[in-house]
Design a protein around this nucleic acid. Structure first.
Lengths: 357, 357
DNA sequence: AGTTAGCACTCCTTTGTCATAAGTGCTAAA
DNA sequence: TTTAGCACTTATGACAAAGGAGTGCTAACT
């Protein structure tokens, strides 16, 4: 689009979209003139709107209805027209109280963020926790629980550990555990799993003597755990919010969206496309059939340079983007800050409170 | 109800409910006689139905409509009339392939059970994983990760471990870790947390000398982890299935039920009432306002004598109880068996395949 | 040239009427 | 005790008529 919209067209487009986002009713020229925002007659507005339609920014549901925004219209709106929304004191309070909850566990924080987000924005929230595992185990630890049980701990990434109880017919002492731990750390730790071949395993068995038979169940678990290393946990909150928007009530839309909530991989695919700030996917832009007519707004959570998750909302294209964007940015950054704060070395960058009252 | 229904009344009641469960349409006397099941005229059926109505088992949506079951009707149906449903080969296959998946992790198993359940029954599934934590830590383990990071592992119940990375400005060596581990195991392990008082903590600090300052962050985490010891993870699958039943489409029912899915405590309260076999809650029986008109069918999963979770479905009162009951019983027992099988000592009780083809 | 008033036109939505179908309760006969 | 028959009730769907909101277009105005 090389053609630039005149300021007046932009103002009209903005007014139409603002109103439509609020009411959900198509906007007619007459109604628009009644909001004393423009010093023009309805006929003039009508002409302008007709042009905005032929340019692809507006459309009519049917001949005798007002205009509603097209996806292109929304796109232009979020890129150029939309104003920053200043979070209210109440909204900030709600988010801060969640962020400062004593339990600074990342997954809890992300889960709660979803809930707060759904409440705050009145749209369905999506919260993803993504464990950052590589294909190597950094270190093993084995702790005996009682004579026949021990706990295997694998330290994978920086902040990622997996545990598993293993039961054996043999008697496990502190010494056995120590030995097992040493062998594992020598042979498997810091190595890519693909290099752990059968001869390798046999060598380990030899080292362990009578306890060699324990290697097999342990490695079985190691493989399992690594297989699900880049596992992502997706939580959906406030599904009922969808019902507040008539665009989901009729037609199969609701069913499609709910169905997609069970196919979380598709959702994740979309979230993969996140850039560094808040990402907005309007309608077809996300490329998923079921989400035609829905918009996603989301942002990655980056801790210590790594993406550890994402939060976002899903709702009708007619979404209050500016409020949602502010909330998501604040929450996502807030979580990142809360986590970074628990790493002493990065305390040089204090949490930025973009909206301190 | 001391009054016993005559066999004929029971037969008619069963026919009405069976048909209504299948079609969702109120059942009239004429339609009923057309299914050649009874050798009676519509008028006779009518009289019987009128009596069943005055006894409280049936009701009419409006004067000129057929009859539908009341909650009392359903109750009598599931208690006395319903036939056992024999799971089909396909259904068994689907469940078995899930149960025998290589990843025998309990939480994964329960999560997947929810998905399978939703698919199989065509109702929304609820899967709860309940970690069986007590208020004591059985054993601590500390593993250094690098100079400034170590991993704290707490073994709580039999099969329950919690981990947390802790960062410190100090340099942590293998020896420090060992010392810390010993002190924790001596002072805190096997003790109720309420006995760990301030003087106690100071004593520990003394033992650790220069590393005394590590006690505080560690204990902070211990308290946190214990606080969420009896945490329950609730997963809902197949929410879109609700839309297949007209009883949810209109009225606020859908919204109420979806809203309740976000207030998982209420759901858990209901599930608490589980008895040892499949539990059926019909309509108001569950005592939760939002679930009037919905039924829950669920069963606990018991491993090694402890309740580790539950699976169930939620749907309209007009639910295919017999099919659902069979599926839930099979899955719940299947998970329990799969888990028990991984405990060598309990291998004496082999999985019972109630429906082997 | 841009703006505005006026008007005919379109299409959705609501309302009312009516016929139809399904099912009932009741009475009287078998 | 069962059944046939009949008058009555109510939901549902089709159809027409009326009303409203908004449009495009033309012609006049600044």
């Amino acid at each position: 689009m090389l053609y630039q919209l005149t300021p007046r067209k932009q103002a009209i487009l903005k007014a139409v979209i603002d109103a439509y986002i609020e009411t959900g009713e198509p906007m007619g020229s007459k109604t628009l003139t009644q909001m004393r925002q423009f010093d023009l007659s309805s006929a003039t507005i009508r002409n302008e709107m007709a042009e905005l339609e032929s340019l692809g920014y507006l459309e009519q549901p049917h001949t005798s209805a007002g205009r509603i925004p097209t996806e292109l219209g929304y796109r232009f709106y979020v890129d150029s027209l939309m104003q920053d929304y200043a979070l209210s004191a109440g909204e900030l309070a709600q988010m801060n109280s969640m962020l400062k909850a004593k339990t600074a566990e990342l997954d809890k924080l992300i889960q709660n963020a979803g809930k707060v987000m759904a409440n705050l924005t009145n749209y369905t929230a999506i919260a993803v926790k993504q464990s950052t595992g590589k294909n190597t185990v950094k270190r093993f630890s084995i702790t005996p629980v009682d004579q026949h049980n021990f706990l295997l701990v694998m330290i994978c990434g920086e902040r990622n550990a997996k545990t598993r109880f293993i039961r054996t017919e043999m008697t496990v002492t502190e010494e056995t555990a120590e030995l097992l731990e040493q062998v594992l750390n020598n042979f498997v730790a810091e190595k890519d799993l693909s290099t752990v071949t059968l001869p390798y395993l046999m060598q380990m068995e030899n080292c362990l003597g009578a306890y060699g038979s324990l290697i097999s169940p342990i490695m079985k678990f190691v493989y399992e755990a690594m297989g699900q290393a880049d596992e992502k946990d997706v939580r959906i909150d406030g599904v009922d919010k969808l019902l507040e928007y008539p665009e989901f009530l009729d037609s199969g839309k609701l069913k499609e969206v709910l169905g997609m909530f069970d196919r979380k991989e598709e959702l994740l695919n979309i979230l993969e496309s996140a850039d560094n700030d808040v990402t907005i996917c309007i309608g077809r832009e996300n490329g998923v059939e079921a989400l035609t007519g829905s918009s996603l707004v989301f942002k990655k959570i980056v801790v210590d340079g790594k993406t550890v998750g994402a939060v976002g909302v899903i709702g009708p294209c007619r979404m209050d983007y500016s409020r949602v964007v502010s909330a998501i940015r604040y929450l996502s950054d807030g979580i990142a800050d809360a986590m970074n704060a628990s790493l002493p070395e990065s305390s040089s960058s204090p949490p930025k409170d973009q909206n301190e009252r």
